[in-house]
Amino acid sequence: MTVTAAAGGPPDTREAAIVVRDLSKTFGDFVAVDHLSFEVTPGRITGFLGPNGAGKTTTLRMLLGLVRPSGGTGLIDGVTYAELPRPLETVGAALEATNFHPGRSGRDHLRVLAATHGIPDSRVDELLALVGIPAAARKRAGGYSMGMRQRLGLAAALLGDPHVLILDEPANGLDPEGIRWLRGFLRHLASEGKTILISSHLLTEVEQTVDDVVIIANGQLVRQGTIDELHGETTALVRTSNSRGLIDALRAAGLEAGDEPAQGPGAVRVVTGDLVRVGDIALGAGVPVHELRVLRTDLERLYFQLTESPENRNRNLTDGALPAGPPTGAPPPPSPGPGSDAPEGSDR
């Protein structure tokens, strides 16, 4: 069940940077996190996804030693957070964008944190310049915009030059320009070999940024793998007036093909990205082609299907009654390959 089993990616010989094993947390009789296990591969950006209330923040807070697990462990570099001798130099975390005293300047906020590890003020100023708020950080944090708070949070996470970053919803409240900046910034950090775990409730927000995904719903693992695995194999859509003839011809050529009623009348789905070949086969068979294009998986739709299937429906939105038979303790096994359960849907 490791993300390392990535098709395409080089086999990783290093140990996972973050290991979550059987982690659980109950608040009263509410199960926030339910026997969750996953690993985060070093040097990659992993998206930690799930709807609001899925248990993402609780999981991250357990990993960071802020919340006491009811069961299981979360390890970073093989030890719990509290066992790290100089935690800020191993792990940088940005949790909520509201974690500032409104009367203290952003720079002083960082200086307070820096003091705990004997980090000099010059490093604070260096980071403020890196996240692009050197002047504003001398004003009191109460007046900061959401974007500035997120940037200040990132600067705080980077203070000790950690090699693992844990970011809880860093894109929350950012405008499109801010999200673009964040994407570039995270890519830059990843290129330095940092391991990044970034949570989000919106897949589209991180889709272009992450290498791997861990999807949870109702505190349980729903799926994990590389983003490419989630996309599935590339498929093509062909529209024709003779779908039977076309399917036969494609199958005769050794391609997997079938009707795709979801795409309207006469739509045929072929598992290949080679549009030229599909066109040639159709021509050879004398079948008219009205439309021919690559059909990409709509990840967002897949995400909703994964997180809103009956047993994963958001418990916070139901009338308190949990669905009858969620497979407790046994999260659905992730299907690594381009599974038949990965629904190909609308075009994009």
Partner: peptide, 18 residues
């Protein structure tokens, strides 16, 4: 109280987990 009120306690315990 200020640490709880402004949620800076998270940062405090991240920097000092013991």
């Amino acid at each position: 109280g200020q640490e709880f009120r402004h949620k800076t306690i998270s940062n405090t315990f991240l920097a000092g987990p013991r």
